[in-house]
């Protein structure tokens, strides 16, 4: 894929796109096979056993898919769309490993119903890629060695990205607060803070 092209826009198929398309295909098959699937309507009540078609805008790409009302945004992103950078951690809004941007603001995808994410602009770590190259925050995390096991890293990066979109030149205190909702079990915090400071300069 040419360097200046955005992901998902090129004609070639990356491994990530291939996986995504396979998942979407599976969903489409499920759609054809489900009786009683309805479009989301304003005051319609979706019954617990019903699935409903929703549109999600993730990484500048529209996904139409069938969901159950109880599915979290995290579940849909990972298990239905195959975007596996977003991690399943505590699933109770405490660890931050599922952090995504919703309208440029970091939120926990485990604490949001997919139904609630309709019409919102969602960005996952995959959406920070510049083609096949790493984005500035990702690059800074790599260069500053801002992880050990790496499990919290995509959440940390999304929290940092959200911080920098709101405050391009954060102080060290603002950086610390910015990732205070993301736990790093390995204790890589000093490197994480350095990485975010570096990313702020690079962006």
């Amino acid at each position: 894929m040419a360097k200046n092209k955005k992901p998902h826009r090129g004609k070639g198929v990356t491994r990530r796109e291939f996986m995504t398309n396979v998942s979407a295909g599976a969903v489409a098959v499920a759609a054809a096979g489900t009786l009683g699937a309805k479009d989301a309507e304003a005051t319609a009540v979706i019954k617990p056993e019903d699935m409903v078609t929703i549109d999600l805008q993730i990484n500048q790409r529209r996904h139409r898919l069938l969901v159950e009302p109880r599915w979290s945004l995290l579940f849909v992103i990972r298990e239905k769309l195959g975007l596996t950078a977003t991690k399943f951690g505590c699933e109770r809004g405490e660890c931050g490993s599922c952090t995504v941007l919703v309208n440029d603001v970091p939120l926990y995808a485990c604490m949001m119903l997919a139904m609630e994410a309709q019409d919102l602009k969602i960005t996952t770590l995959e959406g920070l890629m510049q083609g096949e190259a790493l984005g500035p925050v990702q690059k800074a995390f790599l260069e500053q060695d801002a992880y050990q096991c790496g499990y919290c890293t995509s959440g940390q990066i999304m929290a940092a990205e959200g911080l920098l979109r709101k405050q391009p030149h954060p102080s060290i205190e603002e950086i610390q607060t910015g990732v205070s909702g993301n736990l790093c079990r390995c204790g890589a915090y000093p490197h994480i803070f350095k990485a975010i400071a570096q990313a702020a300069k690079a962006r």
Binding site: A40, A42, T43, A44, V45, I46, K47, P48, E49, E68, P69, R70, W71, S72, M111, M112, L113, M115, E116
Partner: peptide, 30 residues
Amino acid sequence: LPNFAYTRPDTLKEAVKQLGSEEARLHAGG
């Protein structure tokens, strides 16, 4: 999550009405 029905009304009046049904729970930020 356990299964539940879901509705997202357009008006406050409708939301209040929907909350009147058995074991209905209000979702704001969630």
